[in-house]
């Protein structure tokens, strides 16, 4: 009698367990940004970005620690954290969303995707649709996504004195190589 209950339970258990291993993660994603003005170019790179993709639900999430952005000019790095991002108050920038297209994660190939979700930076949430390319490989997923961020959208103020040196909108480039979560 009881065995009849146990068997479906065990099956369900494995399904649930299976659902958990649908997660693909990276802890070494790369995010860089670039600001270009005639006076000064500013760039920074972060190689410690964490990102996760759930291939069962097509949900994605990205978490960036602001202090891990490194600038060739150290003074810029200090100003980035102290004056613009206020990293002590807002240590992380995040994105949480869902890939809108239906993707067969079992079939290798390159897919154009767009992820719709919330981009949170400097404590300000913005709904965004981020377009990118997803490459499904043998046992890894590569996601490349470039987008622009308008500083004013995230309440990042530029003082008038340096307004000519910082672009109003930054180009953000992302490259994440996901592997299955063990």
């Amino acid at each position: 009698m009881k065995v009849r209950f146990v068997i479906p339970l065990i099956t369900l258990y494995f399904i649930a367990f299976q659902a958990q291993s649908q997660l693909f993660i990276t802890q070494a994603g790369e995010t860089s940004f670039f600001s270009e003005t005639p006076l000064e170019n500013i760039s920074a790179l972060n190689k410690q970005v964490a990102a996760i993709i759930n291939i069962a639900t097509s949900e994605v999430a990205v978490k960036i620690q602001n202090v891990a952005f490194h600038f060739p000019n150290k003074l810029m790095e200090e100003h980035f954290n102290e004056n613009y991002m206020e990293s002590e108050k807002y240590p992380n920038s995040t994105f949480k969303g869902k890939i809108q297209e239906v993707i067969d994660f079992k079939k290798e190939g390159v897919y154009d995707v767009s992820a719709k979700g919330i981009l949170e930076m400097h404590g300000v949430k913005q709904e965004r649709i981020l377009k990118g390319k997803l490459t499904v490989g043998k046992d890894q997923l590569t996601f490349i996504c470039n987008f622009d961020v308008k500083l004013i959208d995230h309440k990042i103020e530029i003082p008038t004195l340096v307004i000519a040196k910082i672009a109003e909108s930054l180009t953000v480039k992302n490259r994440f190589v996901f592997t299955a979560k063990k």
Partner: peptide, 15 residues
């Protein structure tokens, strides 16, 4: 939540 999942796996950097 996927973000919570990230909080669990992400190694904190030295700040």
């Amino acid at each position: 939540d996927l973000l919570d999942e990230l909080n669990k796996i992400q190694k904190p950097v030295i700040s």
